[in-house]
Structure formats: C-alpha cells, structure tokens
C-alpha cells in the first residue's frame, strides 16, 4: 500500500513505456526465431535461419556499409561541429543567444524538407550543377546525387546540430579561469586546448557522437532519396522486409542484431569516455 502511494504518479508513464517499448522489443526477439510462411505470415516454428541469413556476404556488407557510414558521419560531424560549438561558446552573450536560437530552429525544421532541399540542390540540372556550369567548372549538366559521399554529406548535415548542442553545453561550462591558469602556468594556446578544453568537453563529445551515431545507423530516407537504389543501407533493408518483401522474422532478426551492435557500440564508447577523455579520439 505504501509502495502504491509512493509510486502511483509515475506508474501510468512507466506502464505505457513498458507495454509499448519493453514488450515489443522482447517480442521482436521472439519473432526473430520464427519462420515466414510462403504467404508472408509468421509461422510459429523455431528456427535459426534468419540469423544464418545475416551471415550471408550481401547482408554482412550492408551491415558494414551502414556502420561505416554512421562512423564516418559521426567523425565528419565532430570535425565540423566541435570548432563551431567552441567558437560559439566564446562569442559575446547576445550574439551567442541568436546563434543558438537559429541553431534550434534549424534543428527542429523537418528533416524531410531539408533533405528535399538537398535534392533540389544536388539533382541533375539542380542548383549546384547550374552554378558550376555558369562558373565554367563543368560543360554538361551534372548530377551529384546517387553516390555514397552525397549520402554521407547530407546525413552529416542533418545530424550536425545533434553534435553541436552537447559539445556546446560542455564547452560553455568550462570555467574561464582554468584557461587563465593554464596560460599562467606556461601553456600555449594549443597546449591549453589539448590539455584543458578537450578533456573537459569529453562528456559533450561522448554525448554528441552517441546522438549522431545511433540514429544515423538506421536512417533510411536520406539513403533512399539521396542515394537511390544503388546504396542499400540497413534501414532500407529492414523497411523492405516489413513492406515489400514481407519477411517479418528476417526483419526482426536484422533489427535485433542492429540494436545489439548499436548497444555494444554505445556501451563500449561511453565506457571509454568515462575512463579517459583522451580515449575518445
């Protein structure tokens, strides 16, 4: 009774999440061991075939491509986002406020629409092609879409705010007297950055990399719209199993393996981040 009284307010929310996140996640694990009937329905017969199929070279290469793309995206976002966050933290107060507000607005603008903007820019006869033509770089209309680099570029663009915000929050919290102390003790600008700023912002970097890496592994609409049919990534593969291929047990197995790998990555990465800030790079 006392237990109920203490926990009653939180109960609905946690029940909701348990039923709609916990149970479904357990259910896809179960489903991943079942078979697909010829008519696309699920047969309740135990099998390991779905996992066996993941070791197929085609699937393995899709996994490699997806995780590779996510890693590359995280690295690019860090490379571009860290200096940005660092510079913003040193702006004067008013300017900083405006930059942050506009960053938030960009962050919350529909990712679909922003992807669409890139299509207009990158497509054949698109904005970029027209610009290059006018500048004389190219003679024929060119197409910048449907390639691996364009998918990486657009994904990086999409998740840049996810990197910037946590890094900014960490850098902004560093006590400026620490820089002064470091200069006072004879460290130069570079040394100070390496020994003070970077380690003290490691929590922000850890957060940023996690926030970019995790969603970019499974994101399918950027690769679908920008990469086209040639770049099949994990998200699209899973989505296909759910709609057109209608092989739910295989889709479930793919999801389970993906979630497991992502979870391993996050746990491993965050434990590195906890032990030692320098392990992050």
């Amino acid at each position: 009774m006392a237990w109920l009284k203490r926990n009653i307010a939180g109960l609905p929310a946690f029940l909701w999440m348990a039923v709609l996140v916990g149970i479904p996640l357990i259910y896809i694990i179960v489903l991943s061991f079942l078979t697909r009937n010829p008519d696309g329905t699920v047969g309740f017969v135990f099998t390991l075939a779905n996992y066996d199929r993941i070791t197929d070279p085609v699937t393995v290469s899709i996994f490699m491509d997806s995780f590779g793309a996510a890693l590359l995206t995280s690295a690019c976002a860090l490379l571009i986002g860290y200096p940005f966050a660092y510079f913003v933290s040193r702006l004067d107060k008013k300017l900083r406020f405006y930059v942050l507000v506009f960053l938030m607005i960009a962050f919350w603008t529909s990712s679909l629409i922003r992807t669409y903007g890139w299509i207009i820019i990158l497509q054949t006869n698109g904005v970029l092609s027209g610009l290059f033509e006018r500048l004389g770089f190219i003679k024929e209309p060119a197409r910048f879409m449907y390639s691996y680099p364009s998918v990486i570029a657009v994904t990086t663009y999409m998740f840049l705010p996810f990197m910037i915000l946590p890094v900014y929050n960490a850098v902004e919290k560093i006590d400026p007297t620490l820089y002064e102390a470091s200069y006072d003790l004879g460290a130069g600008k570079v040394k100070t950055f390496a020994k003070i700023t970077l380690p003290l912002s490691s929590s922000g970097i850890a957060g940023g990399v996690t926030l970019v890496f995790v969603p970019s592994v499974g994101l399918y609409f950027i690769s679908d719209l920008i990469g086209g049919a040639r770049t099949m990534l994990l998200g699209s593969l899973i989505k296909n199993q759910m709609d057109s291929a209608r092989n739910w047990p295989f889709g479930a197995a793919l999801s389970v393996v993906m979630l497991g790998l992502v979870g391993l990555f996050v746990v491993f990465y965050l434990s590195l981040a906890k032990d030692n800030g320098e392990g992050l790079f």
């Binding site: 709609l20 489903l31 995790v214 899973i238």
Partner: peptide, 19 residues
C-alpha cells in the same frame, strides 16, 4: 527509449500491433 533507433522502434511497434 530515447536513443532506440527510430526504425527499430517502428518495427517493434508494427509487429506488436499486428500480434
């Protein structure tokens, strides 16, 4: 729950509703 990739949450929910 916040960092479960969207596609996986979607797949899990779809299968759950279906069953």
């Amino acid at each position: 729950s916040l960092i479960i990739p969207e596609i996986i949450l979607g797949v899990a929910l779809l299968m759950f509703f279906s069953v």
